[in-house]
């Protein structure tokens, strides 16, 4: 609990008076919880990266600098499937473009100025964006962003190192890890299917990929899926778009 014990009942004034905000403990708990699951995925990423042919240092470098799970899994997935590192790069960056668009809501909440943008940017990922925009005011939002970002980043990198070291010592293919990456992709895809047009795009992308697998070099089928998204996305929508609060 906070040392400030005299919150007004509706707590309307907390941000005005500079008193500690009541959601702090709940946000901290959620941030630690997200960090723990990120640690588990970090271990998986480390192990899969090693199995795909990366070194321990390369796996760790990706988690420290790239710090965006889905792209990292995509990169090692393409490499593991025999795709060229260039195809891996393209898949990772196409998947990473969503982080660029998270910058819009995040800057509204966090309001980084000048050089602050340099380190704020590093923490803009799915989880931190979701936590930041879910809060009632920007004070709680800023705290949620940083608490989630720091918790997730530290456990993700530590997990990656642990997984990479484990993966270097034993053959992790026997531990069901080959199912981990597609299962994670499926779990990430699922909630996105409710977006306007997303289910159709996902199905078409999957079919295009399926057809191209024996016809093109590895990695190309995944890039073709991006073309599907770009073609559909750039085509004017007939249904009126419901803009989220801007």
């Amino acid at each position: 609990m906070s040392e400030t014990t005299r919150f007004p009942p509706r707590d309307r004034d907390a941000r005005v008076t500079g008193a500690d905000f009541p959601e702090r403990a709940a946000i901290t708990r959620a941030a630690v919880g997200i960090g723990v699951y990120a640690g588990a995925f970090g271990v998986t990423f480390g192990a899969i990266a090693i199995a795909s042919g990366l070194t321990v240092f390369q796996a760790l470098l990706m988690s420290v600098v790239a710090y965006t799970g889905a792209s990292q899994f995509a990169f090692v997935g393409v490499i593991a499937a025999g795709g060229s590192p260039l195809a891996g790069l393209s898949a990772a960056l196409l998947l990473g473009t969503r982080n660029m668009f998270y910058g819009v809501p995040v800057t509204q909440v966090v309001q980084p100025r000048g050089l602050q943008r340099l380190w704020t940017a590093h923490f803009v990922i799915d989880e931190t964006t979701a936590m930041a925009v879910a809060q009632r005011d920007s004070r709680a939002g800023r705290y949620a962003f940083w608490a989630t970002g720091v918790s997730l980043y530290s456990l993700w990198t530590v997990g990656t190192l642990a997984g990479a070291l484990i993966g270097s010592g034993i053959n992790t293919a026997a531990f069901g890890l080959s199912a981990a990456a597609p299962a994670i992709f499926l779990a990430l895809l699922w909630p996105q299917l409710s977006r306007d047009g997303a289910a159709t795009v996902a199905i078409v992308a999957a079919l295009v990929t399926l057809v191209l697998i024996p016809l093109t070099p590895p990695g190309v089928p995944i890039l073709a899926a991006a073309v599907v998204a770009v073609v559909v996305g750039a085509t004017p929508s007939r249904s009126p778009r419901v803009q989220e609060a801007s």
């Binding site: 889905a70 899994f73 995509a74 997935g77 393409v78 499937a81 025999g82 898949a91 196409l94 998947l95 473009t97 969503r98 660029m100 668009f101 990456a181 597609p182 992709f185 499926l186 990430l188 895809l189 996105q192 299917l193 977006r195 047009g197 997303a198 289910a199 795009v201 996902a202 199905i203 078409v204 992308a205 999957a206 295009v208 990929t209 399926l210 697998i213 024996p214 070099p217 590895p218 089928p221 995944i222 073709a224 899926a225 991006a226 599907v228 998204a229 770009v230 559909v232 996305g233 750039a234 929508s237 778009r241």
Partner: peptide
């Protein structure tokens, strides 16, 4: 709109290759 559609398309493709792609066949 393109940015919102890229992740589902890429993830669907990654799942598909993860399940049925054995080095190009």
């Amino acid at each position: 709109r393109t940015a919102y559609l890229l992740p589902p398309a890429m993830l669907a493709a990654l799942i598909m290759t993860g399940l049925v792609d054995a080095n190009g066949h």
